[in-house]
């Protein structure tokens, strides 16, 4: 069983999925809350409520996976930190491994 470390998205509990979406959204550059909501909606078809968004943002910020930048027109952009990039890369790798296994099993099931 893999050892759980503080740098693990699973520790965010019910905010782990919104947290992952936010990290993915920030992977191509800083964004403010509204831009993240739109980007995540385009990416996943899921619109995060402002409560869920800021619950996840606060947790990611507390863990220094993202950091706030000076505000522009009342809106504050956030950017991924180095630790955040590592956490995201690790999670995407793990998701890919699970997806690969799932695809291969699905392929095997179709073949039989």
């Amino acid at each position: 069983m893999p050892r759980r470390t503080p740098e693990n998205l699973d520790d965010l509990g019910r905010f782990s999925e919104p947290g992952l979406f936010i990290l993915i959204s920030l992977a191509d550059g800083p964004k403010h809350g509204y831009a993240m909501t739109l980007d995540i909606e385009t990416l996943t078809g899921q619109r995060l409520g402002p409560g869920t968004l800021y619950g996840a943002l606060a947790r990611l910020e507390a863990r220094a996976w993202i950091e706030a930048l000076p505000p522009r027109d009342r809106r504050r952009p956030y950017r991924l930190t180095k630790v955040g990039k590592t956490v995201l890369a690790r999670r995407l790798e793990s998701v890919r491994a699970v997806a690969d296994v799932g695809r291969s099993r699905l392929g095997g099931a179709h073949a039989s």
Binding site: P50, G55, P71
Partner: peptide, 29 residues
């Protein structure tokens, strides 16, 4: 977070789901 939260939530009227989401976030805060 107040100012950016309001900027993100916008000025339009909120639906029940969004109100519940914000109340849950307040309890969480």
């Amino acid at each position: 977070y107040g100012e950016e939260f309001l900027a993100t939530a916008g000025n339009q009227s909120l639906g029940t789901q969004q109100v519940v989401d914000i109340v849950a976030c307040a309890i969480d805060a």
